[in-house]
Design a protein around this nucleic acid. Structure first.
Length: 535
RNA sequence: CGGGGAGUGGCGCAGCCUGGUAGCGCAUCUGUUUUGGGAACAGAGGGUCGCAGGUUCGAAUCCUGUCUCCCCGACCA
């Protein structure tokens, strides 16, 4: 597959549903999840018109539907951030190289993937092209931020004088650049959009509390807003953020059973405080180093939404983050009667738009773009609008409409779209609760699938190997017990896991205590870990 | 960054080996007939064949370089 699949009307794959009589569903996508998950993922992005290639390696153009979803995530996350007393700021995209040299493990972690600006002017190369002007070389190269700990650390050092200035709670919404070797739309792009929280505290206890507050905020956003169940826990030492003392994550299970790190929260100790000189005078008059944290979620979340909620007909957007929760499609015939039909639909839109669901006003779109209703319907199916309404002139005469729930698209009996016909008033009366039901249903489906694909009780590496050999289609995750080796012993463990393409995801925060032996060493286990293949 | 594959109208592809100046399906536009659930027929528009060099009378086709995408690996908040 050299390019993204088409998103026009597919050559239909007729499929007989097992257990049903001769029902053949004509899906809106050409590729099924079970046939080629990676190709399916790309087809969803293209078919839902979320993003496209830009021509620049690893960088994508995020189109209105994809960006609209990001704006919804931003809005809801920003509300949560501000509710915690964190204030938004903006810091420069260019960071002096020397900033990175101050924190050894930080630079070691990021040096391999940093974009560097070295010149500030172009000149003609004499052959019709442009080259950086050798006379315009920067005295000190500037790094395009891969993350902003170092430059925000400088600011914190300036802003913090006394214990009264603490805690200092900041956040910024920004783009960052990491020169990735292998990119995938939304999941790993060279440039991505994110939010990075940076906080400074008087002591370890406060900083750890903030680390956990952010983690819990991410769990709530993922589960309540994105309908994406996650497991919050601590990363093992080999997976820590460069420069962190503790790294915590939320991990979500994709429909192919792989794990996606959907958000991270780091306790940075005093590492960055020492590097940048972030100090305060305590109540006794002594100078103390601050304890800092950082935490972030990115446009990667959108990739997670696709792989958690998407189906063989495209994306399914949870109502809380759907740019349009309800799309009304009048069945226009390019005739005079269209005017009355649009008016009827506009009245419906107004009835809905004044209502609330999921603590917000309903977002309703009246799609009056010219074109056949059926074609527009499938466009919105592929985009994943939660509720799709079609109204024809006869519906209007009867005061009715046709309703299609994106999460219950097909009538299993005849393989046709499962339209419900109801009066405009009846629909308006239940629209809000329908949206809330869809939000819940998407979450429940995802949680049920995840829980069914976490395997516990595996106690030997032979069983691990057998599990992944026997369940290649969707191996899911394993929860195993271990003795938490460190240093070289941990490296030996990760090497053994790597043989099965496995990684340690995290130590679930709410997991049961250990009661057995370490699967790697046979020593008494101290905690349970999640092991999985990952994006 | 290593190995493999691929770039030809909006999308999916054929043509390339054996150079002769671009074709198919879908989509789009127009017309007609239809139409209550993903309409049919007819006609039309749309492409400097990723980009740059080279070979040649002539390059989508052969050669070299380069960019981008996909898969596997390494790497990776």
């Amino acid at each position: 597959m050299a390019r993204l699949p088409r998103h026009g009307r597919p050559n239909f794959h007729h499929r007989t549903q097992p257990g049903h009589t001769m029902s053949a569903i004509r899906h809106a996508l050409t590729i099924k999840r079970e046939d080629d998950f990676a190709a399916w993922y790309q087809e969803v992005i293209s078919a839902a018109d979320m993003a496209e290639e830009s021509g620049v390696r690893g960088c994508m153009v995020i189109k209105p539907w994809g960006y609209g979803i990001w704006e919804r995530i931003q809005r809801l996350m920003d509300d949560r951030i501000k509710a915690a007393g964190v204030q938004n700021c903006y810091f420069p995209i260019f960071i002096p190289l020397k900033n990175f040299e101050r924190e050894a493990s930080h630079v070691e972690g990021f040096a391999k993937e940093m974009a560097v600006v070295t010149h500030h002017r172009l000149i003609s190369d004499g052959k019709g092209g442009l080259i950086p002007d050798p006379e315009a070389k920067l005295e000190e190269p500037l790094v395009v931020r891969p993350t902003s700990e170092t430059i925000i650390g400088d600011a914190m050092a300036r802003w913090i004088r006394s214990w009264r200035d603490l805690p200092l709670l900041t956040n910024q919404w920004a783009n960052v650049v990491r020169w990735e070797m292998r990119t995938r739309m939304f999941l790993r792009t060279s440039e991505f959009l994110w939010q990075e929280g940076h906080t400074a505290h008087a002591d370890r206890t406060d900083a750890l509390a903030e680390t956990h507050r952010a983690l819990e905020m991410y769990r709530a956003c993922a589960e309540d807003d994105l309908a994406m169940p996650v497991i919050a826990g601590e990363k093992p030492e080999n997976e820590r953020f460069p420069g962190a003392v503790e790294t915590w994550s939320i991990e979500a299970m994709m429909q192919d059973g792989k794990a996606l790190q959907a958000g991270t929260s780091h306790y940075l100790g005093t590492n960055f405080a020492h590097a940048a000189g972030i100090q305060y005078q305590d109540k006794e008059g002594g100078q103390q180093f601050c304890h800092t944290t950082s935490w972030g979620v990115s446009t990667r979340l959108i990739g997670g939404i696709i792989m958690v909620h998407g189906d063989d007909d495209g994306l399914r957007v949870p109502p809380a983050i759907a740019p349009h929760q309800i799309v009304i499609i009048p069945m226009l015939r390019e005739a005079p009667e269209d005017e009355a039909l649009v008016a009827y639909c506009e009245e419906l839109r107004a009835m809905l738009a004044s209502q609330r669901a999921l603590d917000e006003r309903l977002r309703v779109m009246l799609d009056v773009k010219p074109g056949k209703a059926a074609a527009k319907r499938w466009d919105w199916v592929r985009k994943g609008a939660p509720l799709i309404i079609e109204v024809g002139s006869r519906d209007m005469a009867e005061g009715k409409l046709a309703l299609l729930r994106r999460d219950q698209l097909w009538n299993a009996d005849n393989g046709k779209p499962a339209f419900q016909f109801l009066t405009r008033e009846d629909f308006a009366a239940q629209a809000a609760s329908l949206l809330e039901a869809i939000q819940q249903a998407l979450f429940n489906q995802a949680r049920t699938r995840r829980d069914a694909n976490i395997t516990r009780g595996v106690t030997t590496m032979d069983e691990v190997a057998a599990h992944f050999a026997d369940n290649q289609a969707r191996p899911g995750w394993l929860e195993v017990q271990w003795s938490k080796p460190t240093g070289e012993a941990l490296e030996a463990v990760t090497e053994r896991l790597k043989a099965h393409k496995l990684t340690i995801r995290n130590v679930p925060r709410d997991g049961s205590p250990a009661d057995g032996l370490c699967i790697f060493t046979g020593a008494p286990a101290v905690e349970r870990i999640l092991v999985a293949r990952a994006y």
